[in-house]
Design a protein around this nucleic acid. Structure first.
Lengths: 211, 211, 211, 211
DNA sequence: GATGAATGAGCCTTCATTCAT
DNA sequence: AATGAATGAAGGCTCATTCAT
């Protein structure tokens, strides 16, 4: 009499265990035995549910990417449609969501980034994610800057996001999400047209007044 | 009398082979057999010269860091003492030196960055390097900006450098060093006092006139 | 449900294979491959059940010591409580039990004795065993001899046991258990008080009469 | 221009280094590198002088046996021809000579004893030595005991010697040569004819009187 | 669905030995 | 005579995976 709905329980459980293991000992030493022991199950079950270790790793990466994507989307949905500054802030905020700054997640991210160079499947996932960030930024920037300039600024913001994240990943204090926001806000202040910035300031005042 | 002076030949040879192997198959699959086969020698020799695989990996990291450091120092030595923009450009240039942009070196860097989280020795090396970049930038920025502002800008530039580098590492086209310089020049243009920028422009004109 | 209860089968099987291997090629050449091939299983299983080669060797030593200890205890349980000669004969008999005189066991003993000098865990086991022999002998001898004399005789008997055993180990004919008993009986004849010996003779006559 | 007489220097030097290495880390871990480092020379030299590691080990064993043999012969040469007790005491004394009780020598002995089971050359050496002890004892004992009894006593004494030695080898306090002499003297006291013992006592008194 | 048992491939390392110098 | 260099073989161990239960 098979239990139904087990996959829905086991899969997230094993994905979380994978991140715990990577956090604790690194990807290289995160064996199926280690991972499954974190989940409190038998190593054989990984093959059962993910067809092998590679499958599990891929799903773990996908899981993180899904969370990132959802975080950005949620924040964007709360924004005014035409306040470019607010929307870019939302995109940045999604990338520095507390969930993404958890040590488990950071180490897994970094491990996969390095790994992606040599595993086509991970590489593809990573590329999609990377392009999505640029795409999100471009949608906003194109509205207030000429195309080439928008592209230049988008690349810069993306670089700032990834650079702050990368440097923070190695820091004993972890990543400082607020500093990230300040750095990028400062950057936008100097790159965006004054109307765009003015509009943003107005909206912010209005919001505060309403609360 | 035996053959002498082999260490001076073998050590760089094995370090280069290590980077080749990491480039080709990734750190995880870069076994001593793989590495030594790239060097055309026996695997046992790694233990002979480096005391083990870990020793070789550490020396490889050190080698890259030394090259990076040397690249920056050389460029700084060619600069005018008081042209802050030129000096920062030199620091950035060192970080985007063609040697550092070689696929071999990029992948090794990234692999070690990820690995550093779980190996104290690599971690220490990485931290030293990270702090040195900030330190180099601070020396220049402190001269033209208030301390707190200098720190803020230094972190931003460091983030831009690492971010561009990280994003480029994953790009099929590799890292675009010139774009990096343009992005950072643009950033400086907006952050530094106008006198500083003016001085720089004057010097550049003078230089071109002399050639 | 998986196969269960394998440890109870595999562990003694591997311990026996270890002794076979030591008997055949010596401890130095008894690799995990050799040992596991005697057991007809994969080398990896040694790590599975004993955590490594050292664990297996230690368990093998323990197994021999247990058998020795059990052999002595069984024989003592069959003895009259107050017949010192009979009881010492039992102790000696346990040390020259056919199981202990098997070539496999002798060579393993000797290999471990030599090894014990450099492995704390084996050393401890060996010392415990050594002291237990003296302790068993002392319990009997103290009842019929002054303390100091008892100690002297106990050391002598222990030396005779180990000496005969050691010399026999190297002999092509193996160890002669009966000769050992004769030598030690002769020694006791000259060391123990005449009442003790008389009592023993009486009991022996009685026993034979009963059969 | 080859140096002459080097073998006479190098060979004992390497044999001593071998014993040092065995004393320090055990036979199993006494590699040619370890041994040659104790001698302060290159590992390759072992092959040069002994044709390989096995040759060195065999020569080391031979060296110990030679010393043992010489120790016994020297002591016998100092004895009265017809004092059996004195002569047996000399034989025992040779076996417990301070040189033979050195930790280095004990551990090497034991290692070789165990090893001898599986190396014909070492086995032969060991057997010769073993028989020589019995032979020395028999020469004396035959003069005062019937043949069969002499054999029995010779075996007993040999067992006592080896037993005390073996047990002492494992003891943290090492081997107690004086205790060995007392145990064997006590044994002889009870096994030899009274005339033999009387003669010995007379000679001893005479000797002391002369000094 | 889940697991304990078992394995084969591969990894890092050690080591005795050979060789050119 | 002596050695640093180099290696092939072997050793212990880890690990992802398979399988019967």
């Amino acid at each position: 009499m098979p239990k139904v709905g087990m996959p829905a329980i086991r899969k997230p459980q094993l994905i979380d265990a994978t991140m715990q293991a990577i956090n604790a000992v690194g990807l290289q030493k995160a064996s199926v035995v280690t991972i499954s022991s974190y989940a409190g199950v038998s190593p054989a079950i990984i093959n059962h549910y993910f067809g092998g270790k590679d499958g599990l790793l891929e799903e773990t990466m996908r899981s993180i990417l899904r969370q990132l994507s959802a975080g950005v989307r949620q924040r964007l949905d709360l924004c005014t449609k035409d306040d470019v500054v607010e929307r870019i802030t939302a995109i940045v905020g999604g990338n520095f969501d507390p969930v993404q700054l958890d040590s488990k997640v950071i180490k897994t991210w970094l491990a996969f980034w390095s790994q992606a160079m040599h595993q086509p499947q991970l590489y593809r996932l990573q590329r999609v994610n990377e392009k999505r960030l640029i795409s999100h930024l471009m949608i906003e920037l194109k509205r207030v800057l000429p195309y080439e300039r928008a592209k230049f600024v988008a690349l810069s913001i993306a670089a700032l996001i990834d650079g702050i994240w990368l440097r923070g990943s190695l820091s004993p204090n972890g990543i400082d999400g607020q500093l990230a926001q300040r750095i990028i806000a400062d950057y936008l202040e100097k790159q965006l047209p004054s109307e765009t910035l003015a509009l943003h300031r107005q909206r912010q005042l209005l919001k505060r007044a309403l609360l």
